[in-house]
Design a protein around this nucleic acid. Structure first.
Lengths: 277, 277
DNA sequence: ATTATCCATTCGGTATTGCCGAACACCGTT
DNA sequence: AACGGTGTTCGGCAATACCGAATGGATAAT
């Protein structure tokens, strides 16, 4: 242990990694993450070398590679390192290539216009919702609605819409995995509460989030299906909480369902009776 | 030469790379590009190994790393490799973190609503426009408007709006770099023609693209400035070509200028008298 | 059925290369 | 003028990223 090699130690500090990764690539990707999450005015080479416990020369070589490919860009003087245009390009390309968001986009725009709300589409990733596209509503209020991140399933309407299509077994499994973390006073934090809610979602055909994730914010969501009847995602409409009557909620729910069904139809999908694997 | 090592050969085939890059990282990034530009239903390991002239084992190790970080995702059976959610996440984060697009976003939405057109904002990258955000118009017609890519400066209204703020020397340099490639019959392909057009842009305060990039499509753009009076980008509105009277074009131009100026103002910028470095 | 052909995956062994550390040059401050 | 802070270049060693062969599984063709 006393004669442990430097890089051996470095790879240990990197945390456990699955079999046969490429260490230098992993380091490079962590470096991208660092820059993306860095301050708006960028990070210096020394900053990065320090916070990654690597030599400046090694970090510089990696950074140069990333800059050449556009994942990172530099601003002078400094130079300071900022996220590059390739990230925007590939992000846009990835969303555009995904059949789900490609088809959903104009339908989201339509729903946003009709409802005046911010509308998003999520993909079902192992029972968790991952939003892949968004159309902001015209309102003055702006939401912090990141794309591409795995969101909590039990506090978002899109998440609930997806969950409601899973088997009881799968719901339990997802609930265990996310821990039913509490976000507000209205968050559902028990498995029995969640299963009750799922019953309601199945009855109504749409899911709601009434200030269960963020105080003052509500959402309404509905599921999307593929040609096997599998739930592959959901859309949701988000707005600031107003005193909606049950009647109004119902109306909005029906509107969201209509648009979700349009997407399902264009995907040549069909709504399944749930429970089927 | 007869005893040239394998990896030595591989790195030669990779094309010349700038001083002290990290070869394995470069290979990984090329791999991302391959997957992003790949078919909608994904690439197999064998596909990738073949088209990169690498061993399957090496490619597999790299892919595993990329999958772990979410840059690539797999679908079974196959497994086939597709672009991952991290690309969407970091693309969205990068655009959201950039002060230009963060400030521009609501103003773009407003302009889109008022004009009924698709509206975009570009950053000035060495005289070339790189679009970093977009708000689609409500129209049925959808444009192919990729983000994050360096676009041609002489065929887009945003590009012209940026060019018009450069010195004659810089304009000549950019023109040489892009070669004034012809895209349609109306494309400006001569330096003198471009400089004449720049005069017009400066007189009017906005730039136009009347079917110079894509037949049937027109754009109107205006520049954005930082606190040094430097042009850091531009916005543009794009629509299908209608028979606009000069009067209507002028009205749309004024509208675009107004919104560009709003962005400049919120950036604490000031419009420069051009020519200043 | 049985072969044949594709695929993904595992595993050593080797030399490539990615890494470090030291030395340099370059600002700003002190 | 001497410092602490940059970014940068350059050897040299050892870790490691790579290849190729071998395995097992799946599907298609005989």
């Amino acid at each position: 242990m006393s004669t442990m090699s430097k890089t051996g130690l470095a790879s240990m500090l990197l945390g456990e990694q699955s079999p046969t990764q490429v260490a230098s690539v992993a380091r490079a990707l962590q470096l991208i993450e660092l820059v993306v999450n860095g301050p708006t005015d960028g990070l210096s080479l020394a900053d990065i070398a320090r916070s990654t416990n690597r030599s400046k020369s090694a970090v510089l070589a990696t950074l140069r590679t990333l800059v050449d490919f556009g994942y990172v860009r530099t601003i002078d003087p400094g130079p300071k390192y900022l996220p590059g245009m390739t990230l925007i390009r590939f992000g846009d390309l990835t969303a555009g290539k995904d059949p789900l968001s490609a088809i959903a986009r104009p339908i989201l725009a339509e729903l946003s216009e009709k409802s005046g709300l911010t509308v998003r589409v999520a993909r079902n990733v192992g029972g968790f919702p991952v939003f892949i596209d968004r159309v902001d509503g015209p309102g003055v209020v702006r939401f912090h609605t990141p794309l591409g991140a795995r969101e909590l399933p039990h506090v978002s309407s899109a998440g609930k819409a997806i969950l409601a299509e899973l088997s009881d077994e799968q719901i339990k499994s997802v609930a265990r995995e996310c821990g039913l973390i509490s976000r507000t006073k209205r968050t559902i934090t028990t498995l029995s509460g969640l299963q009750e809610e799922m019953e309601k979602v199945r009855r109504e055909g749409f899911a709601t989030d009434e200030e269960e994730d963020v105080p003052g914010i509500f959402c309404v969501g509905a599921a999307i299906f593929d040609h096997h009847g599998q739930c592959i995602g959901a859309i949701s409409a988000t707005g600031v909480r107003r005193d909606l009557t049950p009647r109004q909620v119902n109306k909005l729910g029906k509107l969201v369902i209509t648009h979700a069904d349009q997407i399902t139809k264009q995907l040549h999908g069909r709504k399944s009776t749930r429970g089927a694997k």
